[in-house]
Computed example of a mutant assay.
Amino acid sequence: MGVAGCGKTSVGQGLATALGWVFIEGDAHHSPASIAKMQAGQALTDEDRWGWLERLGQMLADQAPVVLSCSALKRAYRDRLRLACPALRFVFIDIDKALALQRVADRADRHFFSASLVDSQFTTLESPIGEPGVVTVPATLALSAQVERALDLLTPRNNQETRP
């Protein structure tokens, strides 16, 4: 989970591959109206997101074990997903605004999300740090290191201390 451009899809695919689980790309399940809104540079509202979160929650419940990439920017969104899948855990991919903006701009030709919405993502974000079941991975690490760090934090081996 995290803001646009943090690497949710790449890290999620890497985790799914490593775990042998199904991968679900959350962005693929937005309504056509929400996609059009984002393409037009309009931020989604809570009302725009509730149906999307319900769809994702149902997918989590139906297809577990699964890795889902989803912004889940507010605690209420994360809680909605936790209702559908109580054992759900989150990997928060922490990124600064400048890097997120650069990454979103770099992928503009292949993704519907407008770079003009990056500010609204950071405004909406309610940090999950400190919530139960949340681990944090820096977006500045190489992709393989992000996946390895997430796996280490999510699945500590033999009760050994995990790497910082």
Rank of each mutant, 00 (worst) to 15 (best):
M38F: 12
I95M: 04
I95G: 08
Q102V: 14
R89M: 12
A18M: 07
H111M: 05
K97A: 13
A33F: 01
G20Y: 05
S34A: 15
A87I: 09
R55P: 01
C85D: 04
A18H: 04
F23M: 13
I93K: 09
I35H: 00
L81T: 07
V104A: 05
A98T: 07
H111K: 03
A33H: 06
D46M: 12
T17F: 04
V22P: 14
A40F: 06
L53G: 05
E54M: 04
G41H: 08
W50L: 12
F92H: 15
Y77M: 04
H30E: 02
A33T: 00
G51C: 08
A76L: 11
P32W: 12
S114H: 13
A33N: 01
A43D: 07
R75F: 00
L60F: 12
R75C: 03
H111Y: 01
W21P: 05
R107Q: 14
H29Y: 15
M38C: 14
I24S: 03
E47K: 07
L99S: 14
V104Q: 00
L117N: 03
I35L: 01
G57T: 08
A43N: 02
D96M: 03
S116C: 02
Y77E: 12
V22L: 15
T123N: 11
Q121F: 05
L60K: 10
L101F: 09
R80C: 04
Q102T: 14
F122V: 00
A43Y: 04
A72I: 06
D46I: 07
D106Y: 00
L88R: 09
M59T: 10
G26I: 11
P32H: 06
M59V: 12
L99H: 02
R55W: 06
I93Y: 09
G20L: 02
A100T: 01
C85E: 10
L53I: 04
F122E: 02
D27I: 13
F92P: 07
K97C: 03
A33D: 15
I93D: 07
L44M: 09
L56Y: 02
A40P: 07
R82K: 09
K37L: 08
V66R: 04
R89K: 14
R107S: 11
A98R: 07
E25C: 15
D119R: 00
A18V: 09
G57D: 08
R89C: 10
A36W: 08
Q58F: 05
F112C: 03
G57V: 09
A105C: 15
R110C: 05
H111N: 04
A43G: 08
C85G: 02
M59Q: 15
A100K: 01
D62G: 12
A76V: 14
T45P: 00
R82T: 03
D106E: 15
R103F: 06
A40D: 04
T17N: 10
S71R: 12
